[in-house]
């Protein structure tokens, strides 16, 4: 079974066919909207933390952002699940699209970046949380990677 066969099989399952062909707003449109809400939650929480690490709103203690990671994971899982569901509906086109593969790769980098921020900034007991250049660098790369991920996601709808 080649990759193309696997993608065609996914796209042909009853689940994928129903999702794709149903006229109900609770099918494809709602999953797509959940994907947008997850984006707002995940990228929104990440952006607020990144801005603080870059030196905005210094009156907010960096430590106060510790619960943000839970919010980001909630957004991430909403989008991982809704993303897989959306993928099934168009598995052959998305699965063979370079834009889609790039988008997944960039999102993987975003998640690694988020994890490194947590390790470097929040799990370092002695130093002030935002000391040094590294947190700023990580925040800047986080912002840049999310902008690229969003752009690739939008491009997928047109490519």
């Amino acid at each position: 079974m080649t990759l193309a066969d696997a993608l065609a099989w996914i796209e042909g399952t009853a689940f994928a066919v129903t999702l794709r062909e149903s006229a109900s707003i609770w099918a494809y449109p709602t999953v797509l909207t959940l994907h947008t809400i997850g984006l707002a939650v995940l990228v929104g929480a990440s952006t607020a933390l990144d801005l603080r690490l870059l030196g905005c709103a210094r009156a907010i203690p960096v430590a106060a952002f510790a619960p943000s990671f839970r919010v980001m994971w909630i957004g991430f899982w909403i989008n991982a699940v809704s993303g897989v569901v959306l993928f099934t509906a168009e598995a052959t086109t998305k699965g063979s699209s370079a834009t889609f593969v790039w988008k997944l790769g960039i999102i993987a980098l975003c998640v690694v970046n988020m994890w490194v921020i947590r390790r470097v900034v929040f799990e370092r007991p002695a130093a002030p949380l935002d000391a040094g250049a590294l947190p700023k660098l990580l925040a800047a790369s986080s912002l840049a990677l999310w902008v690229i991920a969003i752009a690739l996601g939008r491009w997928m709808a047109y490519a």
Partner: peptide
């Protein structure tokens, strides 16, 4: 992302989360 991220933070503080942060500090964002 900017609006929901920052308004969300502000709204959560109004709702009583993250009490260690003064409201005025969040308004700097």
């Amino acid at each position: 992302a900017l609006v929901i991220g920052i308004a969300g933070l502000f709204d959560l503080r109004l709702m009583g989360f993250m009490r260690q942060v003064p409201v005025a500090a969040i308004m700097q964002l």
